[in-house]
Design a protein around this nucleic acid. Structure first.
Lengths: 190, 190
DNA sequence: TTAGTTATGGACCGATCGGTCAACAACTAA
DNA sequence: TTAGTTGTTGACCGATCGGTCCATAACTAA
């Protein structure tokens, strides 16, 4: 290792991610990242590669952490349907900040195939988690057996992303919360 | 007028909008706009002002046209509930391209108050249109009278924006169409 | 101590950014 | 015709972009 790094990698990645998150990928300059991380340009390049590699790293970490958190939240719910409700309501929590993956996908997926592919995989993974929980809710008698789990999981995911977007668009928090309740009530009734 | 303009304003605005739409605001350079419009930089500035003014103009036009189209589509529906269903399904039509307003809002609303304000107004206008159509559907007996029109309009709008986003994220067209049908069936049942 | 290795940080690079401007072209009114 | 006005064009501007490089610092192994 010779000379040791003077920074904590995870902390730097979080700071960099927050900078990208705050203003977007294109609007973030290397100087912004230097300022946010406290590192010099050379260190940033040496440790993480160029701007795009660094960005993809923060996006990967975000997706990994988010999926792990979702899995845990779903598994922790004694009744699966409560987990599904929590998943929906979570979409109304981020407000103006939005979701890092959704913001990045909207900005870049049409022109950046790496981002597009990452998003596709992430949403497929989430659908799998949700679908498994839908099946559990059916076994627990909280959702009709006739529902096709994967298709319904996509419906829930779409509703959740709608909430995320309406929050980003500036819909007032209390109105957004009302929509979230309404959607949960309508989509998760037995 | 002295020397007449050699370009058609509406056509230039559409070309410029399509360029912004294709890659985003920040990723579009003035040279891109010169190329897309066929005009020189000076002409573009003389006619529309700077990059941001030009962008806001295209966004305003898009919102105006979209709202007019929606109003017409809703009014043309013999049964209001069919208009509402059409509104939902329309969210699944744009696919990767997404919605110009939604793309722009996600990219810019957090840092550009003009865009944020424009988006907020647009979505409020749309909620009004939808709410009026919800009331009509109630009078026509296709929706329960107990529903609060404005709140339910926001629920439908949120679901529609979820569809728009999932399309942008790359969800395959046939799956997106399935989600749209599913959402319409679940949210618009009497 | 010394030789070797890696991390640091900012000076520096060519390219490109958004925006300006002056010379010129194309019209109208007198 | 001529004077006045407006539109067009691309050369040009300073600023900033993403990225490189290197002198130096901070360590380890011999």
């Amino acid at each position: 290792m010779a000379r040791p790094r003077k920074f904590e990698e995870q902390q730097v990645l979080r700071d960099v991610r927050d900078q990208f998150w705050a203003v977007g990928y294109e609007a973030t300059s290397l100087d912004d990242l230097v300022r946010a991380s406290g590192l010099g340009k050379g260190s940033l390049y040496g440790a993480f590669g160029d701007k795009h590699k660094l960005f993809m790293r923060t996006l990967d970490d975000y997706v990994t952490d988010s999926c792990a958190g979702l899995r845990q939240s779903l598994d922790e719910s004694e009744r699966a349907v409560d987990g599904l409700r929590g998943f929906l309501l979570a979409g109304a929590a981020s407000l103006r900040q939005g979701c890092y993956l959704a913001n990045s996908t909207t900005e870049l997926a049409a022109t950046d195939s790496e981002v597009a592919e990452r998003a596709r995989k992430a949403y497929e993974d989430i659908v799998e988690l949700i679908a498994a929980t839908v099946e559990r809710a059916q076994r627990e008698g909280d959702l009709p057996g006739g529902i096709e789990p994967t298709a319904f999981a996509r419906t829930l995911q779409t509703a959740q992303q709608g909430l995320v977007y309406m929050g980003r668009s500036g819909l007032p928090a209390e109105q957004l919360a009302g929509v979230a309740q309404d959607l949960a009530d309508r989509l998760l009734r037995a």
